[in-house]
C-alpha cells in the first residue's frame, strides 16, 4: 500500500510519553508518519486540538494517557475520556470515521503496548485512505460553533448526550 498516513498523537508527560521513550530505547519500529505532541496530561487536550489536527491534514489523531486511576493529576484522563466521547459524535457528523480518532491508555512501562497501539492505528487509518475532511468546506462558522459548544459542556451535560452503552463504558472505567 502506498498511502502513508499522517498521524498525530497527544501523549501525556507522565505515562505515555515515557512509554514512547521506552519504545525508542527498545529500538522498536513504527512509521515516520506518526508524530507525537507532548502535553502535561491527557486532560489538557482541548477538543479543538483534534479538530485542528484534522484540519491541518492529519489522517488520524490519538490521545494517549495514563490508565484510569493512574493519572499523575488524579483524574485528568477521566476528563479526557468524557471529552473524547463527545468529540467522537462531532467527528461522526463531520464524516471522520471512528478509527481515525482514538483514545488509549498506555502506562510508562508499556513500551510494547505503545508500539502495538500506534502500529494498529496506523494500519487502520491506512485502510481508510486519506481523509476527506468535510469540516474544511463547512468551516469555519459551524464547526467553530460546535467546537465551542463542545467545550462549554460540563462533564455532567456531556454524559447526558451519551447513550446507555457509552455511559456504561465510562462508568465501568471510572
Amino acid at each position: 500500500m502506498d498511502f502513508k498516513p499522517k498521524i498525530v498523537i497527544f501523549v501525556c508527560n507522565w505515562c505515555s510519553y515515557a512509554a514512547a521513550d521506552g519504545a525508542g530505547m527498545k529500538r522498536a519500529k513504527y512509521p515516520a508518519g506518526i508524530k507525537l505532541i507532548r502535553v502535561m496530561c491527557s486532560g489538557r487536550v482541548d477538543p479543538q486540538f483534534i479538530l485542528q489536527a484534522f484540519h491541518q491534514g492529519a489522517d488520524g489523531v490519538m490521545i494517549m494517557g495514563c490508565h484510569p486511576g493512574d493519572c499523575h493529576y488524579k483524574e485528568g484522563n477521566y476528563k479526557a475520556l468524557r471529552r473524547a466521547k463527545l468529540l467522537q459524535k462531532i467527528l461522526d457528523q463531520l464524516g471522520v470515521e471512528g478509527d481515525r480518532f482514538k483514545l488509549e491508555w498506555v502506562s510508562a512501562s508499556e513500551a510494547d503496548r505503545f508500539i502495538k497501539v500506534v502500529n494498529e492505528m496506523y494500519e487502520n487509518v491506512q485502510k481508510l485512505g486519506p481523509l476527506d475532511y468535510k469540516a474544511d468546506t463547512l468551516f469555519s462558522s459551524e464547526v467553530a460553533e460546535t467546537v465551542e459548544q463542545g467545550s462549554e459542556t460540563t462533564p455532567e451535560s456531556v454524559t447526558e448526550t451519551l447513550d446507555n452503552n457509552e455511559t456504561e463504558e465510562i462508568e465501568q472505567i471510572l
Binding site: M40, C41, R44, D46, H72, G76, R83, E148, S151, E152
Partner: peptide, 23 residues
Amino acid sequence: CGTCVAGCPSGCITAKHFKDDQI
C-alpha cells in the same frame, strides 16, 4: 495539569508553557 484550560468555554484560561497557540 491543564484540564481547566481544555474545559474553559470562553477560552480565558491559559496553561503556562502549554498555551493553545504553542500547541
